[in-house]
Design a protein around this nucleic acid. Structure first.
Lengths: 218, 218
DNA sequence: CCTGCGATCAACCAAAAGGTTGATTCCGCC
DNA sequence: GGCGGAATCAACCTTTTGGTTGATCGCAGG
């Protein structure tokens, strides 16, 4: 059986319709179900599973809130159901910030594509993911390559996390609470961040991080 | 002739496909052309015009860069070609910041819808725009109402100037030097800015200002 | 002409952020 | 098994910001 069964997850009906139209026309690919958010996606996946018709690939939009959870949760299905491997998750999103990419890869996504990619690229990514491979948009791949090549200040995941909260205007105290750590630790992280970004205050850190696309700005 | 001729403008092939599928099914609506950016859109509109088959509605995504220009430019067609009215422009975007909405309305858009709106709402908006009416997404309408009820204090030119330097990560001392004023004055301005933006520190001010598009971010 | 507002500055105090030193724990790696 | 890096926290100190009060100047509008 070489018909690839795709599960769409995106909160925009327009985008779902687009993907459906775009992928549905292609022979060998069938869109078997859709969901508007992470919760519905998990329910849908479970249902398909019990029907004995599991999806082969999950195509998921990455939103700040529930998106990431979706990936990790999908991964957890794998752990729970021993014999049945979880479908690979292919992220399809608008932004290409380091923070997003790293988070997605770390959460176990097997691909990261941008929404403005040409249809053919998206199709290829789906095929590749279904075959157990990985698929990165050229822009994303380039960014990752750059990260490894440049011994440039490699920020840790935690530090990027911090940076993101920083950019929302939160004070050290608020950040500490949010991350369940002490203010002292926040300050330590900040000192490290400043050092790595070659900067000496939080505002400049945000400016540099945003410019280097370490964090996203909508 | 009651067949509505729609022109799609969106840089995401996925979204264009979605809209095409979503609107094309509906009787009385035909998607006659598409474009990926403002420039191509203008060229396409002109071409349709010379063919004697002008579009009735332009459905346009609003991107930071060229999107807004597209609306104004479309408006300019109207001014140029005396007898031929320009097609109404319906904005369809992801974000609903005050600045975006205001800018769109000011530029002459005849509608502002959000991409996560249900298909039916989008169809209604297209029909309404084609009929010469306006269409606002409920969320957008609510936001506008809120603005009228309690208008946000406008920042002075000087204050925006400050904000811009602020966003580069400069300290008060540096800003003072740059603007040839004293640190005291910088602080005074900042206090005013914080008040107007409803914020209490510089980082949050930048976040809000950026979100409201009060300052640029490349 | 007077009122209001933007821009400018000063002095002062409280709070937050920045910087340093040092210490602990938990990893992964050679 | 030890080495180094990431993450965590504490105590202490300096600098920067934030917040307040009050004052001067110039210009636009009623």
């Amino acid at each position: 059986m070489n018909n690839i069964r795709v599960f769409l997850v995106d909160d925009h009906p327009v985008v779902r319709a687009g993907l459906r139209a775009m992928l549905g026309d292609l022979q060998g690919i069938t869109v078997v179900a859709e969901a508007a958010d992470g919760g519905a996606a998990l329910a849908g996946l479970a249902k398909l599973h019990t029907l004995g018709e599991p999806a082969d690939v999950v195509l998921m939009d990455l939103q700040m809130g529930a998106g990431m959870d979706g990936v990790t949760a999908t991964g957890r299905i794998k752990a729970g159901e021993a014999g049945q491997p979880a479908p690979p998750v292919l992220i399809l999103t608008t932004f290409d910030s380091d923070a997003d990419i790293l988070a997605a890869v770390e959460a176990g996504a097997s691909g990261y594509m941008l929404k403005d990619a040409p249809p053919e690229q998206i199709r290829q990514a789906v095929l590749s993911a279904a075959a157990g491979g990985t698929a990165l948009a050229p822009e994303v791949a380039a960014r990752l390559m750059g990260r490894i090549r440049n011994p440039e200040p490699a920020l840790s995941v935690r530090e990027i996390q911090l940076l993101e909260l920083l950019a929302t205007g939160m004070g050290n105290r608020a950040i500490a609470k949010q991350l369940f750590i002490s203010e002292a630790t926040v300050k330590t992280h900040l000192v490290h961040i400043y050092g790595k970004l070659g900067v000496d205050n939080r505002t400049a850190a945000i400016a540099v991080a945003a410019q280097r696309r370490i964090i996203r700005r909508p």
